[in-house]
């Protein structure tokens, strides 16, 4: 009776995937016994797994708790404009970061990682011929993209322009997700066929999804920028976290997750 087990496991991953798209605080566990106030980090949805790992590494190295809150980069920017309390912000678009700096909401901006835009498709049954995303124009596939307002959506649009597929793609889009994690969720759960995400959004051994690189010559890089929130309650802690982010330990974690580092 392996069928129900597998089904239950699948349902659990699906649920987790769907919940990860929620723009809700999903705090990292503070290490026990710590009395120091937590550093509050707002991070882009596409950084969810890697920042959890970095947060845990920081906590164990510096014995200082980190609380993480994930959402689409634009949502994070809105939250900062509305005065949400935070110490560090990390977004998936240098322009958003620049805008926040210009509004004097964020200081000390830096780019700490990059990721590239790729196709993501649902794995077919074993033995079936793999679909080539470049056949999109002649297909009846259901395509899911991030909404152009969020960085992943803007990058995807740029990539489609470069591929000459934008018109064909827009005719097949069934949903513009409000953050990039919505794209993978729609492929896993709702049965969409194809999407565009950051290469770092899907692990190479994912049982349901597989990544397909864009053709050589088309390369769209997303820059991840981070900075110190001006109104930070823990400015010293925030600076320390930003330094840690630029340091060798964090770089190692980022590289292992497939991010590029400067």
């Amino acid at each position: 009776m392996r069928q129900p087990d597998r089904a239950a496991g699948k349902a659990a991953t699906l649920l987790a995937a769907a919940l990860a798209t929620l723009p809700l605080p999903t705090g990292c566990q503070a290490s026990s016994g710590s009395r120091k106030p937590a550093i509050v980090v707002l991070a882009a949805a596409s950084l969810t797994e890697v920042f959890r790992e970095i947060g845990t590494a920081y906590e164990s190295e510096r014995e200082r708790p980190v609380r993480l809150s994930f959402a689409g980069s634009q949502t994070l920017a809105t939250q900062l404009r509305e005065g949400v309390r935070a110490d560090v912000v990390a977004v998936a678009d240098p322009e958003i970061l620049a805008d926040l700096v210009e509004r004097d909401l964020v200081a000390r901006p830096r780019q700490f990682a990059t990721s590239r835009i790729v196709w993501v498709l649902r794995r077919g049954p074993a033995g079936a011929q793999r679909r080539d995303p470049m056949d999109l124009a002649g297909s009846d596939w259901q395509l899911v993209l991030a909404s152009p307002e969020v960085p992943a959506g803007a990058y995807a649009r740029r990539a489609l322009d470069a591929l000459g597929l934008r018109e064909a793609a827009e005719a097949r889009v069934v949903s513009y997700e409000l953050d990039v994690r919505g794209v993978t969720a729609k492929l896993r759960l709702a049965g969409a066929d194809l999407g565009m995400v950051y290469a770092t959004d899907v692990r190479p051994d994912d049982p349901d999804l597989e990544l397909v690189e864009l053709p050589p010559g088309v390369r769209v890089l997303a820059g991840y920028g981070a900075g110190l929130v001006r109104e930070a309650a823990q400015p010293d802690g925030a600076v320390a976290f930003l330094d840690f982010l630029d340091g060798p330990r964090a770089r190692q974690i980022l590289t292992r997750a497939g991010f590029g580092t400067p």
Partner: peptide
Amino acid sequence: TITFAGNLEGRTQTLPLAIYQLLQSRP
């Protein structure tokens, strides 16, 4: 709605979804 139906103008983008999307570009 966003989880089950997605977000596409004219087909599944209802007011709450449109408001959330507008919040990103034109708060």
